[in-house]
Simulated assay, not measured.
Amino acid sequence: MNETRGTTHPRDHFEISTLVSGFFRTMDERRFDEGWAGAYFTDDLRTTTPLGIAEGADAVRHIEEATGRFAATLHISSDLLVRAEPGARTASASWNAHMTHVHLDSTLQARGENANPLFTVGGVYEAKLRRTASGWRFSHMSVRAVWTTGEPPVLPAETATRVAKLTGAQAGR
């Protein structure tokens, strides 16, 4: 993302930074109560992840399901860059993320006694945002892994097959 210095109002940067931090905290604390997504996303949210593309309610469900594949997670964001013209209704943002995932006991049991309990990812998020009556909300969010350590979670068969087709990887890991 190219950022032009001096165009983003400090208030917009602060509000978007708070949105990013709140979203990560919600995932880590698993606060997926009814209506949680309205605090972070537009109704037409589109997500792009290593597991594919999802839109609307499916994108929200995908986030909840992906988080639920782990016993615990910790997402840390840094180097937030925001581009929003003063008074604009749209913005773009990118940030680095360090994401640590603790595998479920069932994953560790499936992999055997020497299984690594952690799957760690260093990645980059890119987002498009819209200013709504309730504040800034993500309308598109993508994450790209730059590096990983450990193994990803054991995926349901249908998801593993879809990922294998997308990535050319072996299904069923």
Rank of each mutant, 00 (worst) to 15 (best):
G38P: 04
R31C: 09
R61Q: 15
A91F: 00
S134K: 10
I53P: 03
S78N: 12
A115Q: 03
M1S: 14
T90C: 07
L104E: 13
I53H: 13
G123V: 00
S106F: 07
R83Q: 15
L108H: 06
T149K: 04
L166T: 10
V146E: 12
R131S: 02
N116K: 14
S21T: 14
P153Q: 01
H9N: 11
D28C: 01
S17R: 14
L80W: 09
A88H: 06
Q109D: 14
I16W: 06
A91L: 03
S78K: 09
V121W: 00
A39R: 11
F23T: 12
E15K: 05
A160E: 10
G87D: 01
F119N: 03
G168E: 03
T49A: 13
I53Y: 09
D58W: 03
A72F: 02
G123A: 01
S92V: 02
N96G: 03
A91R: 02
G150L: 11
R89F: 02
A97S: 13
V143S: 15
T161Y: 10
S106R: 13
L129D: 03
T47G: 02
R111Q: 12
H140Y: 11
W136L: 02
G150S: 13
P86V: 01
I63H: 05
H103N: 07
T100D: 06
T167M: 07
A72T: 08
A93K: 09
R130A: 03
T47I: 04
T42A: 06
T67V: 02
A145G: 01
V60T: 04
T120W: 04
D12K: 04
A54I: 15
A110W: 07
H101Q: 11
M27A: 10
D58L: 09
L118I: 14
F119Y: 08
P117G: 01
E151N: 09
A157I: 15
S78F: 04
T159E: 15
R89A: 07
L155S: 11
